[in-house]
Amino acid sequence: MIQATNIKKSYGELAVLKGVDVNINKGEIVSIVGASGAGKSTLLHILGTLDRSDSGDLQIADTLINALNDKQLSAFRNKHIGFVFQFHHLLPEFTAIENVCIPAYINGTNEKEAQTRAKELLTFLGLKDRMTHKPNQLSGGEQQRVAVARALINQPDVVLADEPSGNLDSDTSQELHELFFELRKQYEQTFVIVTHNKELAEMSDRQLVMKDGLIV
């Protein structure tokens, strides 16, 4: 699914990634763990095509990312990658279902089709009664689940999550984590999760431990 070889990235003098190799298989849930500043988020951004590496090859779903221009990259990201961030990053003016539909609309999906799929996802995530609520009317856990639905709307090859439960209490975190496994079971969804949460890391299929810009 994802093959990254010898990924390097520096910010000015500071080398953040010093030649990282990552291989993620379809349906896998992989967590990336490590101390703050180890380069976990940077790696995730590069895997998510939000940032470009200085060198190294990245292939996602048989597409060579380095060969894409900005516009192609946007379209690729839209269709193939879903994101869940530490903060939900939902758009405050839009209801839950509208937020979920936005990636589908960007992709040009028609309204009816997008909404059907969004309803399906929100129902699956236990938000059937919260669809028309705006983000500020939802609890932290609900907001994060809406964000998960948004990440899934275009049926991406991989969902990348950056500290998805970093802002949630332990019970809600637990629920969210279980959801990831539920989704893997149901849809064979691939997840790459950056986390400080030990339980989540231990639940995952594999842990990639990062230290000083390398996977150890």
């Binding site: 998510g48 690729f76 758009l91 992709n107």
Partner: peptide, 9 residues
């Protein structure tokens, strides 16, 4: 956010 979700410039 929109860019992360795949909207182009």
């Amino acid at each position: 956010i929109l860019k992360a979700l795949g909207a182009n410039n």
